[in-house]
Amino acid sequence: MNRVTSVLIITRTKDRPELLVRALDSVDQQSFSDYLHLVVNDGGNPDVLDAILAASPNDRRKVIHHPHSLGMEAATNSALRAHQARYVVVHDDDDSWQPEFLSEAVGYLDGHEKETGVVCNIQQVFEKVEEGRVTTLSSRPFNPAVAHFLRDDFFVANQFVPIAFLYRYAVHDEIGLYDERLRVCGDLDFHIRLLQRHSIGKLPGFLANYHIRVATPVPTLSNSVSDKAKHLHFAQQVIEAHDQRTLLQRMCSWWRVRLWYRAKNLLLRFCFRLNQGRASGA
């Protein structure tokens, strides 16, 4: 009987070599090594991708080439159908980890059998890309006030991004794969479906980096959230499909929770900067 790999890492990419190189290095630097890294080329230039992979050899890495783009969620599902593992994480080609992410996340789930997934704290990194060079502009904690993940909170906003989320592969047998009809926000839909039946734990460390390009002139280098109209359209589709409350109840809840999260995040960021100032002055 073949042994099942501990972690399946899925990276979806299309013609973003400047960013993909960083993602590959992020995986290669992990202190935890029992993984399979599956790169899904969703309609990008296969020769360019193969050259990048050849320059960063890793015998735990494989590639799937889509001749034409099928979309983000279809790319994820291609990887899920191709390989099984105990745990899954989506490492997009523009994000990155700290070296201990997999070690700590796997250790948490190994020790908490009742939890279906675990999320670490996230550092939001703002950057620009000029002439193939990525430059960091600023960074800040992303949604750090959240200690527990409740399904209804996702009707206000997605509480975390895929780079920070390790979960059990077996949950797909119960709730299905990602919804390929959604061009974006497939992670929001998946998180809501998962939380209908299961719980997600939280790691205290800032082990994942969520990178956002600022004012990039190259469309392929932008984030999925950059097209706000498209993102809002699909987010509303997801929420309306899952949220059975009346429109008035949704609006009242949205504003109440949104203001509460805003106040908590401002307070936590103030405390975080205050502690940084004290540490630098020590």
Rank of each mutant, 00 (worst) to 15 (best):
S199F: 02
N2V: 08
K264M: 05
H91K: 11
N158R: 04
P144F: 01
H83S: 12
D94R: 01
S6P: 09
S69I: 07
D243S: 13
V146K: 01
S78Y: 05
G186N: 00
V4G: 13
G111W: 09
A51C: 13
H242T: 08
G205W: 04
T5F: 06
Q84E: 10
S103H: 11
V218D: 08
Q276R: 15
A157H: 09
A229E: 05
K14S: 09
L24C: 14
V125A: 06
I175H: 00
F155Q: 07
R16L: 05
A75C: 06
D110P: 02
Q98T: 10
Y178L: 02
S253Q: 13
R168L: 00
G132R: 14
V161M: 02
A282K: 15
G71V: 02
K14D: 03
L20V: 07
L259T: 09
S96D: 12
K14T: 15
D47C: 14
R245A: 12
P46F: 06
D50L: 11
V106R: 03
A208G: 14
K230Y: 03
R245T: 11
L150M: 09
I122W: 00
G43L: 05
Y87P: 03
G44A: 03
E18N: 12
A241P: 08
A164R: 01
E18V: 15
R133V: 11
Q244F: 15
V184A: 04
T76F: 01
D15A: 09
S78H: 06
H211N: 13
M251S: 14
T76Q: 00
I122V: 12
D42L: 06
V218H: 04
L177Y: 05
L102E: 01
R256H: 11
T11I: 12
L166A: 08
F155I: 08
H66T: 15
V88G: 00
K202C: 11
P141Q: 10
F149V: 01
D94I: 04
F149Q: 05
D42P: 06
D95Y: 03
D173I: 02
H65N: 11
P17H: 12
N45W: 07
Q237G: 09
F101M: 09
I52F: 08
A82W: 05
P162Y: 02
C271W: 07
I163K: 01
V184S: 03
L8S: 04
W260E: 14
V106L: 03
V171M: 10
L109I: 08
H242N: 13
I9Y: 06
A170V: 07
H68I: 14
H172G: 00
Q29M: 10
V48A: 07
G111Q: 15
H65T: 09
A279S: 10
V156Y: 15
C185R: 00
L182D: 00
